[in-house]
Amino acid sequence: MVASSAGEPSRRLGLGGARWPAVGEDPPLVLVPIGSVEQHGPHLPLATDSMLACAATREVAIRLDAAGVRVPVAPALAYGASGEHEDFPGTVSIGHEALWLLLVELGRSACRWAQGLVFVNGHGGNVPTVVSAVTTLRDEGRPVAWTGFGVLGGDAHAGRTETSLLRHLAPWTVRMDLAEPGATEPIDELMPRLRSVGVRTVSPNGILGDPAGSSAEEGRRLFEVLVNRLHLELTDLDVGSDGRLKRPERSGVGS
């Protein structure tokens, strides 16, 4: 479990712990975290993406609740499309086709009673499938959108950015004694090779970036910016052409 300011509000806002009469009295907007089970270098846990998506989603739901807006958080979709990481033991990918079907059917079902649904994606490899699924649902007239999070200037995978976030949120899961640099070229330069040969050929330890310089304090600052941006997006609920909640320029956070 990831640490946060959550207490009783977090338990109350979890859709999985709710009872149907309470849900049915005021059909809410529902948030669904999406993650992955994939290698994150020798020092971070396989569930890193899911842990971060859940932590940010839960925290923003608590803030909205404090402002009088109840937005339940559904149980996370912990598996994603992570085929590029399958050369590493521990990675479990369900692939794009299965993920697409899961998202579409989930959206169709939830929108029978919910005011709307927002997928909060924590794994970059899921993005094309999330966009496709949300586009299908919106074409069917269903109130569905998606968002994700990334830090401007952050490294791509298991580097300083994710390591700092987990050192803040779940320090007991981080093994800094095992941390080491990975492939440090810009992600735009690495992407063609990643797609053609997978992560392990590009980075034998699975890291795209360098965990050096990470800290819990940096993670705290990054997490605050991420949650603030997500809070603004869910307050505005302005949806772009790709079904994504539009990024408020004042938030200072990337994709």
Rank of each mutant, 00 (worst) to 15 (best):
E8S: 13
E8Q: 12
E8M: 13
P9I: 11
P9Y: 02
P9K: 05
P9G: 07
P9Q: 08
S10Q: 14
S10H: 03
R11N: 03
R11Y: 03
R11V: 11
R12T: 07
R12Y: 04
R12A: 14
R12N: 03
R12K: 10
R12F: 05
R12G: 06
L13H: 02
L13Y: 01
L13N: 13
L13P: 03
G14R: 12
G14K: 03
G14S: 15
L15Y: 02
L15S: 02
L15A: 07
L15V: 05
L15K: 02
G16W: 01
G16K: 03
G16F: 02
G16I: 08
G16Q: 05
G17A: 14
G17E: 10
G17N: 10
G17T: 13
G17K: 08
G17R: 13
G17Q: 10
A18T: 08
A18F: 00
R19Q: 14
R19I: 15
R19W: 11
R19L: 15
R19N: 11
R19V: 15
R19A: 14
W20L: 15
W20S: 15
W20T: 14
P21G: 05
P21L: 09
P21V: 09
P21D: 06
P21S: 06
A22M: 08
A22W: 05
V23Q: 07
V23K: 00
V23G: 00
V23M: 10
V23H: 02
G24F: 07
E25W: 01
E25F: 00
E25G: 12
D26I: 03
D26V: 12
D26Q: 14
D26F: 02
P27K: 06
P27L: 10
P27N: 08
P27Y: 02
P28S: 07
P28H: 07
P28C: 10
L29G: 01
L29A: 01
L29V: 14
L29P: 01
L29M: 11
L29Y: 01
V30Y: 01
V30Q: 04
V30A: 04
V30P: 01
V30I: 15
V30N: 03
L31A: 12
L31Q: 05
L31G: 03
L31D: 05
L31W: 01
V32I: 12
V32Y: 00
P33V: 07
P33S: 04
I34Q: 08
I34K: 00
G35L: 07
G35M: 06
S36N: 04
S36R: 03
V37D: 01
V37M: 13
E38D: 05
Q39V: 15
Q39A: 14
H40A: 13
H40Y: 06
H40R: 12
H40E: 14
H40F: 08
G41Q: 10
G41M: 11
G41T: 12
G41I: 12
P42I: 13
P42T: 09
P42S: 07
P42L: 10
H43C: 09
H43N: 07
H43V: 11
L44S: 06
L44G: 05
L44D: 07
